[in-house]
Design a binder for these strands. Sequence first.
DNA 1: GTCTATATGTGGATAGAC
DNA 2: GTCTATCCACATATAGAC
Lengths: 250, 250
Amino acid sequence: MPDNKLNSDTRERILDVAERQFMAHGYEATSMRMITSMAEVNLAAVNYHFGSKEGLLRDVFRRRLTWLNRERLAALDALEQQANGAPLKPSQVLEAFFGTLLRIGEDESLGGMTFLRLLGRTLTDPSEFIRTFFAKEYAVVIERYKLALFRAVPDVPKAEIVWRLHFMLGAMSYAIAGTDILQVITGLEIGDISGKEEDGKSEARRLSERLMPFLLGGLRAALPNPADSYNQQQVPLAKTARNTSLEKKR
Amino acid sequence: MPDNKLNSDTRERILDVAERQFMAHGYEATSMRMITSMAEVNLAAVNYHFGSKEGLLRDVFRRRLTWLNRERLAALDALEQQANGAPLKPSQVLEAFFGTLLRIGEDESLGGMTFLRLLGRTLTDPSEFIRTFFAKEYAVVIERYKLALFRAVPDVPKAEIVWRLHFMLGAMSYAIAGTDILQVITGLEIGDISGKEEDGKSEARRLSERLMPFLLGGLRAALPNPADSYNQQQVPLAKTARNTSLEKKR
DNA sequence: GTCTATATGTGGATAGAC
DNA sequence: GTCTATCCACATATAGAC
């Protein structure tokens, strides 16, 4: 008895609304009643279709990650086949990995920016369930890209590359998850970091144009000199810093 | 009638436990009963001391951010005074900003890695309350560092620097918040990414040694060439990617 | 400042008719 | 597959004695 994905209308509607609500308020702060009322389905429908709230979250992600995993592997396959045994360029590997992800942001049928933000935010969620879920979902793809990066950047030690892959994932996820948040923090408008499409470029594309050079620069950066670790000889710290304009009351 | 910070034992105990629990389970998933029972204080004590659960979270952060903001500004002050009007080096600015943050991770009395993880995770929290709180707390410091970076990296356009500051914050926060998570995702041990102090280096220091070169490389990276944005000519995508080893069932 | 007791709401989940 | 009605655990918050 194979899983007959019936794709009933209500099932998809629930997934769509859940995706948006989980993104907007987070998993814990989103109640099933919020979801079912906005999706205009009965409360019991969620448990019928997904078994539980966790099951719903799981399927919200699976719906998108299946495509993403397949596409990422295919992109790497295509590049390696075309390279004919030669190592890929670092930029190619990053394009395959991050460019594929960002294509989701340009295509509503793949989840759009809603899903990208949800993904970025959920990756740091501390819950055991979510953590192990992502570990399983990502394992195969990450492993292949790691190997590709080892070959693409042979002059950087492997351990260092793994760290940097880690950093790159962070910069990316955070940049996506935090657009609305960090635009406040950084204070600038950056030519409107949020939703609109101006000069014909989608938000995802504008982000990518900025992010890719940054990631490439970080990936290929000069190795750390173990002699000067941080916070030596550089900042003559007053042990008790004097007051600055900050120290506001309350 | 000035705010008499009485620093009663219970108040501090509540803050300590709350900090740890919010980090471990997230704000929404942490109940006040979890906190009060672990802190061995009465349930009503939280509302007495902090007014509400939101008030508790606010004070958990304020306790640490006051120090961090002051120290970050002082570090920049010291550097600029010593530079005597000349622009700082990019590495100096990053050291002052990120090095100061990472010093928290080495000092339990400043919150240690527990607070760093909490901070990294909370920065992407979608809740309105948290977002505006951080925006206010960070505004002054970010503004000053932005200006310092403009001067330190004059050949990169200001808008681009703001983006990259954004990316750097992300790489940093994520690297901290996700150690336990992303160590699974990246699959490698990286010489034990988690808690222990080996070869005499704290987790924060080991992280810093890897992160700083990455950030510097990204900050100073060559400008994007508008001609070749991502995903052009590079990957000959099969529209429907063929199956790979992934397509697992269920 | 600390406690007990409780008000009042909301959460996820399910039983069982249709 | 969909609905109503309901169970019941647990949430935050407060009133008021000590």
